[in-house]
Computed example of a mutant assay.
Amino acid sequence: MQTTTRSLLDDLRSFDKGGFFDLGHPLLNRIAESFVKAAGIGAIQAVSRGAYFTAIEGAGLDSGTGGLPAEISGASKKHRFRDLKGETNRKSLEAMVKNTGKESMQWGLAAGVYSGLTYGLKEARGSHDWKNSAVAGAITGVALALTSEDSSHEQIVECAITGAAISTAANLLAGIF
Rank of each mutant, 00 (worst) to 15 (best):
Q2C: 10
T5V: 09
R6W: 11
S7R: 02
S7M: 00
D10K: 02
R13F: 01
R13A: 08
S14L: 06
G18E: 05
F20R: 09
G24S: 00
H25S: 03
V36G: 03
K37H: 11
A38V: 11
G42V: 03
S48Q: 02
S48M: 07
Y52E: 01
Y52W: 01
T54K: 00
A55C: 14
A59K: 09
A59W: 05
S63P: 02
L68K: 00
A75L: 10
K77Y: 07
K78P: 03
F81P: 07
D83R: 15
K85R: 14
E87W: 02
T88G: 12
T88Y: 09
S92P: 01
L93T: 06
M96W: 09
T100D: 02
E103Y: 09
G108F: 12
A110G: 13
A110Q: 08
A111T: 02
G112I: 05
G112S: 07
S115Q: 03
L121E: 04
G126S: 09
H128W: 01
D129I: 09
D129F: 08
A136R: 00
A138T: 13
V142H: 15
E149F: 10
S151P: 15
E154I: 15
E154W: 14
I156G: 07
I156C: 09
I161F: 08
T162A: 11
G163V: 06
A170M: 11
L172T: 09
L173F: 14
A174F: 12
G175A: 08
